[in-house]
């Protein structure tokens, strides 16, 4: 009985025998969905740490990065722990990045624009001073 109930889970246990690193991020954009249709905006190019990436205009920068397989958005200032997406509504500060030279931008809500320069920031970032 228990085996039937947890068969799905048992598969997970079996998997854990394999190196966990085998799970490759295969993060893709959804196309067919039973309920939703996703807006198809204009494709724009931006850079992430110098690397060219494509995203959809107006989507949050974090969504575009996630779709491109980027999950580490910064490292914590003190202990250097990796930080990613967490709340998606601009309240948790996990996703602060430097965008077009401005540090501490909440990329989970900041809309993507053509030509944006997105960079991971060091520590608390540096304010651009003219």
């Amino acid at each position: 009985m228990e085996i039937a109930l947890y068969s799905h889970f048992a598969q997970g246990r079996e998997d854990s025998g394999r190196p966990l690193g085998r799970l490759r991020p295969n993060v893709v954009r959804l196309k067919d969905h039973p309920i939703l249709e996703f807006p198809t905006g204009r494709e724009v190019e931006f850079t992430f740490n110098g690397k060219e990436i494509e995203g959809i205009e107006g989507e949050p920068i974090a969504a575009a990065l996630h779709a491109a397989g980027v999950r580490i958005l910064r490292h914590s200032p003190k202990l250097g722990r990796a930080r990613g997406f967490f709340c998606a509504i601009g309240t948790c500060s996990s996703c602060l990045m430097t965008v077009d030279g401005v540090p501490n931008v909440r990329v989970c809500t900041e809309p993507l624009k053509q030509g944006m320069v997105v960079e991971t920031q060091e520590g608390h970032g540096h304010l651009p001073i003219d």
């Binding site: 993060v27 893709v28 954009r29 959804l30 196309k31 969905h33 939703l36 996703f38 989507e59 949050p60 969504a63 996630h66 779709a67 999950r71 580490i72 958005l73 914590s76 722990r81 990796a82 930080r83 990613g84 997406f85 967490f86 709340c87 998606a88 509504i89 948790c92 989970c108």
Partner: peptide, 21 residues
């Protein structure tokens, strides 16, 4: 705190609003 630990609302936003798995 590892990237990949997400709030449920964030997962919904990413998936249902932006169409990203």
């Amino acid at each position: 705190d590892l990237p990949g630990v997400y709030g449920a609302g964030a997962v919904q936003t990413l998936m249902n609003v932006h169409g990203v798995k």
